[in-house]
Design a protein around this nucleic acid. Structure first.
Lengths: 122, 122
DNA sequence: CGGAATCCAATGCGATACTG
DNA sequence: CAGTATCGCATTGGATTCCG
């Protein structure tokens, strides 16, 4: 049981597998964590801002991802009815519980960036 | 800077984004973390074992994933030339550095499983 | 500006059958 | 047992265009 404290039964392993599958089901995929991180770091952002920060994402995909994440409670869409209308996206408090997940992933990437770059030669 | 201690400059944010992208580039995708977790929990495992643990994966995809992860240094393929030959897969020490990543993801899934189940009604 | 609609190409991936 | 080969459907997603 390398990553959990205390005794770890077979039942626990089963639960861990399910928990991991749950998590990946919700925030897996190519873009979700990057979008969340962008909003985490930059605060409320507009659509085009977001598309610039999250490198490589198309408007179509960003639109679909935002809609899905809003539906699932990760993202809040704010409409300011000024003229012209301003729309921003931000994370919810539920989404902010992903902070430790993000920081762990970032830390791992920082620690191993040399090997990663070497293996994939970017 | 909700998930990092100390001061956090714009440069740091940029680096964080890159680190996150690096990490997701290497262990992103539908199966890799589940495979790694399975090996993490169960220790060295044979192909068919692995396919049973990682629910839903086909032999074709498992084969391709294992090959790719072996190439990238996450997995060690062991051949025991008994009769019959036994082949097992296990994680490398490099791969084991992902322990904190896995545990964070699992913990988040456990904490929010009720909401996840409600939203997706499984 | 913030998207939605359409079209099309690439990829993913399951099922099945087969092999050493 | 541990895979590989082939097929064919389904999904992803880029490019472009259009709209309020």
């Amino acid at each position: 049981m390398p990553f959990c404290e205390g005794n770890h039964t077979r039942e626990d392993s089963k639960k861990d597998l399910i928990a991991l599958e749950d998590t990946l089901y919700v925030i897996g995929g190519k873009w979700k964590l990057k979008i969340i991180n962008a909003l985490y770091v930059n605060g409320n952002s507009r659509f085009n801002q977001l598309q610039q920060i999250v490198t490589g994402i198309s408007a179509r995909v960003l639109s679909k991802e935002l809609k899905e994440m809003e539906l699932n409670g990760f993202i809040k869409r704010n409409v300011y009815t000024d003229t012209p209308v301003v729309i921003t996206y931000g994370i919810t408090s539920y989404c902010s519980t992903l902070g430790p997940v993000l920081s762990t992933l970032i830390e791992w990437g920082n620690t191993h960036k040399d090997k990663i770059r070497k293996d994939y030669r970017n």
